[in-house]
Design a binder for these strands. Sequence first.
DNA 1: TTGTAGGCGTTATCAA
DNA 2: TTGATAACGCCTACAA
Lengths: 335, 335
Amino acid sequence: MAATIKDVAKYTGLSIATISKYINGGNVLEKNKILIDDAIKALDFKVNEIARGLKTNKTMTIGVLIPDLKNIFFTTIVSNIENVLIQNGYSTILCDYKNDIALEKEKFNFLVNKQVDGIIIIPQGDIGGYFREQLKKNIPMVFVDRYIEDVECDTILVDNLNASYNAVEYLITRGHKRIGIIRGPDNICTSIERLKGYIRVHEDYSMKIDESLIKKGDNDVESGYICLNQLLDLNFPPTAVYVTNYEMTLGAIMALNERNVKVPDELSVIGFDNLHIARVVKPSLTIVVQPMEQIGEVAANTILKRIKGDMNNYPSMVRLKTELMINQSVKDLCG
Amino acid sequence: MAATIKDVAKYTGLSIATISKYINGGNVLEKNKILIDDAIKALDFKVNEIARGLKTNKTMTIGVLIPDLKNIFFTTIVSNIENVLIQNGYSTILCDYKNDIALEKEKFNFLVNKQVDGIIIIPQGDIGGYFREQLKKNIPMVFVDRYIEDVECDTILVDNLNASYNAVEYLITRGHKRIGIIRGPDNICTSIERLKGYIRVHEDYSMKIDESLIKKGDNDVESGYICLNQLLDLNFPPTAVYVTNYEMTLGAIMALNERNVKVPDELSVIGFDNLHIARVVKPSLTIVVQPMEQIGEVAANTILKRIKGDMNNYPSMVRLKTELMINQSVKDLCG
DNA sequence: TTGTAGGCGTTATCAA
DNA sequence: TTGATAACGCCTACAA
């Protein structure tokens, strides 16, 4: 149905080869130039990218694979990735794998089959060394937000350990001695790192950790809700809680509201990630803020670099710094 | 680099045609079957979807185009669209156009060039009859959440008018006489419809509308913030406010928090869309809830139907009902 | 059941 | 500068 180069050739009386060359920036006589332009307009010709991709082995598109489309942290990063990609002439195919490790593999394959020129992924796991296998095939690939043990790959993430360290230290220096943490699941490295920061700062301040103050959630709203309730139900509850991702922060706040807990008087809270939510909550929430724009930028630039063939200092690992945004949800017990 | 059918043919000693047939479900001898399977595994052969698409003129992928990736309402719908698409063997290419009407056109073209089998779009505008033109080319296409004037296309959206009607009626029956509305911009039909509901219910209750109570925002957080402040700064401020989308609802709440307005005692509020936020806010927010799962489902099923060639009752318009979720942010002045 | 051959819409080489 | 022609990897009659 759609017009092809062949049609344009017929229309102009020129050959297919000439049209093709012109389309791709080659030189043709001025009069042919306008002839072709006219034909293209008249026929509404558009290059068939599929056919072109078949020939050139380049699709000028990058696959982006994230755990969940309904997670605004992820989609914001994607949006920033795309900003720089598009400026470099690349487009994006975005998929999510609904936090399902099997689907992750499937979607990854989908992208590979679509012949994308590279893949940026926020990975969950590496079933049977799958990613390692893929990397051997030299498809450019960048991990974002998380790394996978034993997989050598460019990785952009955040200094989770010190993010936690600073947040909890802030609580400690405000006089808090019993600090709860709502941590994420074991299979995600960010959870581990964030927990480590919590542990390390306790060590550095020679504070013993009460294991009952460490609650493990699933990084979703529901589990934040449950964990916070568990913390409040302790015989000896904490005076402050640090929640290690956005969704769980939401859940935690719901629990607080429901139980009518006065923040920060009855409980101090530090949450994670979302600037909007920080201001929507009352009192405004002190949060750890991740540099999402930067994460996206660096990720995009890294994959572009690799696609160009620049394998300088591969595999690279970029650790971006977080920021602790101070608001009003933490009580100063020393003051 | 990657193995092709040719390689499999060589490896097995069979012909390309036989391999192809087997791959596509044709019959081959049992012994050849295992021979081919072995080869496929050994060579790690995967069909090149690009080449296949070129031949079959089908890519088994649907393009999805939304205004903004950072908008959780949109991405949630997409997630639901994908759920049903994937079950039908279709994959998804997701793009956003950053609320930029020119980019919208560009991205749409990108999808067309990728030879997607259909496009689901949350549209903004139709520059120069662009969409109408596209529709003539018979590419299956469905609009979601919004329609475009004078463009005949399957459309799935929400009964915005009655959504507003019911929300505002709820306020009226609680004794509110001065009800502010924070409405969206003129170029989006949902804004218009939601405003209409506000107007109609006033008419039906023979209440005169004070134009100063109608504030026009941009559907973003910032404008919700500004508009709510404007409403509060009126000489004769409203006793209740209805905010017509999620982002503006966030902004409005920020303003309320900042000014320490007691909800619902000093001001009643009805917001839009997000179940999580409704519970994160205190007191919990009464909101209009859109059926995002259903929207996604219907949209996906519609495009699948059209792709199959079923043009029954085209163009269809499905209006889904919203729900008013009652929480604690509205004061009953009659009580 | 299997294989031969032509074509999908491009690009790229090499003559003309 | 232009054009004929052979790929790219796959599918599909049609013939064997």
